[in-house]
Simulated assay, not measured.
Amino acid sequence: METFAALTGRLGNAHGIRISLKRLAERGLVTTIHKRPMVYVIVPPEYRAYGAPPFSWWLHDAMQLIEPEYYAGLHSAARYWGSSHYALQADHVMVGSYRAPLTAGRRQVVFTVRSDISSARTVRTRGEKGAYLVSTREGTLLDLMRHRSKVGGLESIARVARDFGPHLTQSELVRALDAMGQVAVAQRIGFLFEELKLDQMATVVEKWLSPRTRTTRLLAEPVPETLTIMTKPRWRVTYSMRDINEIKEAQ
Rank of each mutant, 00 (worst) to 15 (best):
Leu209Val: 15
Pro166Ser: 13
Ala5Ser: 08
Ile66Leu: 10
Arg107Asn: 02
Gly181Arg: 04
Gly12Cys: 01
Pro233Gly: 01
Ile247Tyr: 10
Glu194Arg: 12
Arg107Tyr: 07
Leu219Glu: 08
Ser171Gln: 15
Leu219Gly: 13
His85Glu: 08
Arg212Trp: 09
Leu133Arg: 14
Arg114Leu: 07
Arg175Asn: 02
Val123Met: 13
Val185Ala: 03
Ile42Asp: 05
Val123Thr: 06
His92Tyr: 03
Leu168Cys: 06
Gly51Phe: 07
Ser115His: 03
Ile19Gly: 00
Arg126Gly: 15
Leu65Tyr: 14
Gly9Trp: 00
Pro222Trp: 14
Gly139Tyr: 11
Phe191Val: 14
Leu219Pro: 14
Thr32Gly: 01
Ser84Ala: 02
Gly190Tyr: 15
Arg107Lys: 04
Asp178Phe: 00
Ser240Leu: 13
Arg236His: 13
His147Met: 07
Gly73Tyr: 01
Thr213Asn: 09
Arg162Leu: 07
Ser76Lys: 05
Gln108Arg: 07
Leu168Gln: 06
Thr112Ser: 03
Ala72Tyr: 02
Leu24Lys: 05
Trp57Arg: 11
Glu155Tyr: 13
Val205Lys: 11
Ala78Pro: 04
Met145Gly: 02
Ile66Phe: 09
His92Ala: 05
Leu177His: 01
His15Met: 03
Val134Asp: 15
Pro68Gly: 10
Gln200Gly: 11
Arg236Asp: 06
Tyr70Val: 07
Phe164Leu: 14
Phe193Thr: 13
Pro45His: 00
Leu173Tyr: 02
Thr231Gly: 00
Met38Ala: 06
His60Asp: 15
Tyr98Asn: 03
His75Glu: 01
His15Arg: 08
His75Cys: 03
Thr140Phe: 12
His167Lys: 13
